[in-house]
Design a protein around this nucleic acid. Structure first.
Lengths: 230, 230
DNA sequence: GTCTATAGCCTGATAGAC
DNA sequence: GTCTATCAGGCTATAGAC
């Protein structure tokens, strides 16, 4: 396989709402673009906004930067989205589902250790392939999550509580070494997202070596030793 | 012991340069305040700047916010520091040494597992007592470390390489389970700083429970299982 | 040392021609 | 749908009185 370009490696995540364009106009709360040009420009704006928000944070980003990166004038961008807030909200909504999918896929029917190791692998792959998305959320949360706190304490909490109960059941059945289930999930977020969010620091320390080279085996070993049979 | 107030819990870290006020004027590259008022105002500015930079990032922070938090007018603040950049640089210089001290204290003469567990405890305690400092660095690095990249690839790299070699020696002597030494250090940064940087998310998910309640035992267990004798 | 006033630029958002 | 022109407010930094 040929080496992927940086552009391809950092492709945007698939848009879960992009699939059925015909049914778009029917009863959706969010209006969908009606023309090819609108669809292309909206996509270009969100792609550019991901670049800028992930690199600068909400406050640090400017509408001008996003417009320039999208190849549009500032007023033209504001024809598609009414405000900077609206761009951020649309991007957040588009990314959130995909961002939480790796955890949703954890399967109660699978082997406990395998399920957790697979979750770790999926999350690390997200950090490698979608580092901008990781930094988009990191910027928001480090600065107090003013725009997404409601989602965290409802949807995210519900999902994590469900999966923590699953893990708790596994440990009580003696199928995993005993562990605080919520903190186990936090540790997976932390360890995997660190490779995206602090990438520049890891590369500064490692020099030539790519942080993602040794990361999969390191994390696999860590969780095997922590959770597996002695 | 009486409950500490939030103010006391989030006290600023000790200033490593504050100790000998008499020798300040002699040949230092950075001029030190000469009067009590100057010392107090400079300290108040740096304290306020830590509040604002850690919550908003460099671009998101404004000189007005810092001045208001320090109880000064904006021009008066700019009498003490020539620019917003200068405030950030002074704060960075003041925090960096203390921030890296926990790693420096890792002792080649101690018991390997004890030394690593003690490092984890010190780092977690830093996240608990100095979350603003953690978020100050997190903001900077997530956004590409434009103002501290040089320090990372020189001073930080040298320190980490030294300690990684120490860990490598321990594993080769059979005193630790084999592990990639650099990634082990990265994992400690990641897991401990996560409790400061993503605090709002952890609290949103946990509800009433304080994230720092179960964290010490969780991390202790994790590293014992990962590195200790089977 | 500290203030008020303000210069001069940047930023989000709008008006209106085409 | 897209543009140029522009407004109103926010921003860093400075001038100059006291």
């Amino acid at each position: 396989m040929a080496t992927l370009s940086v552009k391809e490696l950092h492709r945007p995540m698939p848009d879960p709402q992009a699939a059925p364009p015909e049914k778009a106009a029917q009863g959706k709360s969010r209006p969908r673009p009606r023309t090819r040009i609108q669809a292309r420009n909206r996509a270009a704006i969100l792609e550019a906004a991901l670049d800028v928000f992930s690199a600068q944070g909400f406050r640090g980003a400017t509408v001008d930067q996003i417009a320039a990166a999208a190849g549009l004038s500032k007023p033209n961008l504001l024809y598609y989205f009414p405000s900077k807030e609206a761009i951020h909200a649309a991007l957040l909504e588009r990314l959130l589902d995909t961002w939480l999918d790796p955890l949703r896929e954890m399967d109660a029917e699978g082997d406990p250790l395998d399920e957790i190791l697979a979750y770790v692998r999926r999350k690390l792959e997200m950090s490698r392939a979608y580092p901008r998305e990781s930094r988009f959320f990191a910027n928001e949360i480090v600065q107090g999550a003013p725009r997404i706190h409601a989602v965290l304490s409802t949807d995210l909490k519900a999902l994590v509580d469900e999966k923590a109960a699953l893990i708790q059941g596994w440990t009580e059945a003696g199928r995993l070494a005993p562990v605080h289930p919520h903190h186990l999930i936090f540790s997976i977020w932390s360890l995997t997202q660190h490779y995206a969010d602090f990438d520049v620091q890891l590369r500064a320390v490692l020099g030539e070596e790519d942080p993602f080279e040794a990361a999969p085996e390191f994390l696999d070993t860590l969780y095997r030793r922590m959770l597996g049979p002695t």
